[in-house]
Structure formats: structure tokens, C-alpha cells
Write a protein that binds this DNA or RNA. Sequence first.
DNA 1: CATGAAACCCTCATACT
DNA 2: AGTATGAGGGTTTCATG
Lengths: 154, 154
Amino acid sequence: MTLDAFDRKILDLLQEDATVPIAEIGERVGLSHTPCWRRIRRLEKEGYIRARVALVDRKKVNVGMTVFIQVKTPIHRVGWIDEFKQAVHDIPEIVESYRLAGEIDYLVRLVVPDIERFDQVYKALISRLEFLDLTSSIVMEELKFTTSVPTRYA
Amino acid sequence: MTLDAFDRKILDLLQEDATVPIAEIGERVGLSHTPCWRRIRRLEKEGYIRARVALVDRKKVNVGMTVFIQVKTPIHRVGWIDEFKQAVHDIPEIVESYRLAGEIDYLVRLVVPDIERFDQVYKALISRLEFLDLTSSIVMEELKFTTSVPTRYA
DNA sequence: CATGAAACCCTCATACT
DNA sequence: AGTATGAGGGTTTCATG
């Protein structure tokens, strides 16, 4: 099933601010409240809207520092990948992790209060399993971070 | 001002699911609804809660592919940084961008439907401004992506 | 799809223990 | 912080055009 222009506009709005009342969403996209509400319910039911969450200000909760870790995996050891996934899942400071094609095997993003705390998390990670290489890159400035995904291809 | 255990629990819950009624949040954290509501209002007022948004399923809206671009900036040209920031801001496929300390100057994450579309965005980017070096890494697997930030340091 | 109008729940506010 | 209470607003549903 495909989305029309109304659906895309609704998603765009809700991705920016999910506190807007349905009636107002309707106004903005050019729909009255009932059909607008039906569309939103459909988008939720069919899984286009994964969740509605509160975004917390990182600096306010004292995790203003972001660090990326580039991971190279040790040569084939059975179970390593599962252990790594488990570690990534367990450590709450890790907010993103991806397996990449190319030189680097995994990329990890984590948020911490400061370098000291980062070092603790880092040590906790390398004590859990072995790595071929870990390269940490400290973030100096966040240019963009949005949870809003383009809907133009939907 | 600092947060207590109640505040942290409330934030943890709202970061995972912001549709839970206040009365239920109160139950879960061990507070009755009025004080719970007061805390949430305070957390919002003081900026701990930045926004409430809908998270859209990337694959459902046809941007299932994620690519990282590692950027090396050309040697000092006035205005380059501002132009780069503007480009990052303008391109909706770019969802994250950071300035790093170390070898790589900037890291960019973007979401697209497929390699062809990525190439279009890539070309659009390099036609806007010059770069010393761009290295793209395609994401094979997303191990973790959460908007939920640890509250243990708050 | 639009309009209008219910019924219901939740939010928000207040007063008091 | 808890309990109680009430007004208001938003959500959800339905009937009608």
C-alpha cells in the first residue's frame, strides 16, 4: 500500500511534533478532523508510526558528550558477533550501532557526561570481549540530529 | 537543579513510550497522578523534555538504506563551514551530522531508498561545494538505534 | 470527505490533608 | 506528596449530507 500527499504531510507533522491536536493537523494538511483521525489511526495500525516518544535534552541529563567508536572485529571466532550485539544492547550509553561494509566492521555511537565516564564505558566494553581494533572519535559539534525521516520516497 | 529517582523513571518511561497516560506512569513509578503530572510538567517546562514526536518506520516509508559519509574538509576556505552546514540542513536525507576530532572532520548519516538514490544525493552534495575527501560506508545491518538516552548521570 | 454532535477519557488545575 | 474533585479539551465514534 502506498501513501498519498495527505499521509505524507501528516507524517511530516507528527515527526516534528506529536502534541498537535488532530483538528489542527487536519487544518494544516487540508482535511477535517474525522478523516484526518482515520488516517493517523491507519498509519499507526499499519506500522508507519513505530512509536510516540519524548525526546530528552542530552545536556540537561548530563550526557552532553558524544563519541563514535569504529570497530574492527577479530578474525572469525564463533559467538563473537552475538556477544558484541549483546554488549551493544546492554550498555545504555550506546545509542546507535551499525554493521558497515568496508574497512570498519562496526560503528558505535555513545553518549556520556565526559571523557572520564567515556573511559569507564570503554574499559567495560573491552573487558567484555576482544577486538582487533577500536578507534574512538570525539564529537566536537553536533550539526544535525533529527528523528524525522524524509517521506518523499514513500 | 537535579533529578531524583522518580524523575529519572518518568523520563525513562516517556522516552520509550509517550502515549502512556499519566495515571499509569504514576502507578509504575510509585506516585499518584497529581504529583506525577506536576513532575512531568516541570520536566517539560525546564527543558528536560525537548519534544514529543512520532517515530516513523524507515523501511515503511522506503528509506531502508543507511549510509555514512566521512568528510575531510578542504584546506581553509572562508565560508566553507557555513555552506556545509547549510547543505546538511537543507538535505532531508541527512539525518545526523557531527564535527569530529581527529582524522575525519565530519561524519554524516543519511537515509535513502537504495544505492541509485544515494548516488543522486551524493552528487547533489558534491556539486554544492568542494571536499578534500569523501568516504561512504554503506550500513549492512542496524544493531541498535534508540532515541532513549541514559538518565543515570542526571 | 465534510459537518455536527454526542460520549468518553485524559489532562490540567485547585483545594485540602 | 496524597486524595478528591471539577472544568475543559481532545479523542473517538456515529449519523447525515
